[in-house]
Design a protein around this nucleic acid. Structure first.
Lengths: 141, 141
DNA sequence: TTACATGCAAACTGTTTGCAAATAT
DNA sequence: ATATTTGCAAACAGTTTGCATGTAA
C-alpha cells in the first residue's frame, strides 16, 4: 500500500500529467477509496454529484491519459461502453450480465494452466478473464 | 454445392430464420469453411468481393440474428468493432495486439482452476479468456 | 510568459432503425 | 396472400477532436 491523498498530485506529476483541478478531482474519486470500475459516463455523473465541474470530454481525455500512464486499465467487455479499472495489477473479473456490473476476482484465487506454445515471435502481454454470471436458473441458451 | 447449401438452409430454418438469398450467402461464407472470426465490415467486404449484393445493414442484422440463434458467438474485445466467432463451443482466444486479429486456443489445451465461490444466486454462464500477445521484445509498459 | 488543459460543439465511427419495395412461404 | 426481409438513409450512442479560453509552471 502507498500513501493516500497527498500522493495524488505527486502521482500525476510522476505520470507526466499536470495536477489540474479536474484531474485531481477525478483522481481523488478514482483512487481515493478502494478498487473501482467506472465508465466515462458514470465517472462524469459522480463528479457532477460531487459538485465538481468537469466536462464529459475532459473525463474521456483524463481516463485515456490515466490509462496511457498505467494508472488505469481498460477492461474488455463487449457492448457500447468502455470500462476502466483502478486495479492495474493482474486480476480477473466477474461480469454480472443482468446488471452489467464488474466485480474483481483476486488473482491468487484463480489460475490458468496449460497455455500452449505461442505463435512464434510472440509473447504474452496479459491475460483477460471474464467469468460471465447470470442469475441461477435463468437456464442456458 | 447443392449439398452444402441445402444443409445451410436447413440450419437457418431450424433457427427460425427464412433462408433468404442474403442469409444463405452469408452463412455460406461463415460456415462453409473452418472456424472464422469476422466483423460486420470484414464480412461485408468479403461478400462484395464474392459479388454477393448485401447491404451493410443486413450484414449487421444477420450477424445479430445468427448470434441470437446460437449460430455465432460474440467475442468481447475492447475497442470499436465487434467480433463474431463461428466456433460457439467453449474455447478461448489469442488476441494479436498489433494486427488486431483473433486466433482460437483449443479448449483442452487451457484450463482454469480455482474459481472461488460465486456471489450467491449466481451461476456461470460462460468464461471468456483472451490472451493478449505482442511481438516478443516490444517490452512492457 | 508559454506550453498545456479545458469546455463546448461539431465531427466521427460503429451500429441500429423506420419505412417502402422485394421476397419467401 | 401475407408476413418477413432487404436496402437505403436517417438516426443513434459513445467517443474523439478543433479551436478559443483558461490555467499551471
Amino acid at each position: 500500500m502507498q500513501e493516500i491523498q497527498t500522493g495524488i498530485a505527486e502521482k500525476l506529476r510522476l505520470a507526466g500529467l499536470r495536477p489540474t483541478r479536474q484531474r485531481l478531482a477525478l483522481a481523488e474519486l478514482l483512487f481515493g477509496g478502494g478498487d473501482r470500475h467506472v465508465s466515462a459516463e458514470s465517472l462524469h455523473r459522480e463528479a457532477e454529484a460531487a459538485r465538481i465541474p468537469v466536462s464529459l470530454a475532459t473525463v474521456y481525455n483524463t481516463l485515456n491519459q490515466f490509462t496511457a500512464a498505467g494508472l488505469l486499465r481498460e477492461v474488455a467487455i463487449e457492448g457500447d461502453r468502455t470500462f476502466f479499472d483502478t486495479n492495474t495489477s493482474n486480476h480477473f473479473h466477474y461480469f454480472l450480465e443482468e446488471a452489467g456490473g464488474l466485480v474483481d476476482i483476486g488473482t491468487e484465487e484463480l489460475e490458468i494452466k496449460g497455455l500452449p506454445s505461442l505463435p512464434k515471435g510472440m509473447e504474452v502481454d496479459r491475460i483477460d478473464v471474464i467469468v460471465r454470471l447470470r442469475k441461477a436458473g435463468s437456464g442456458r441458451a
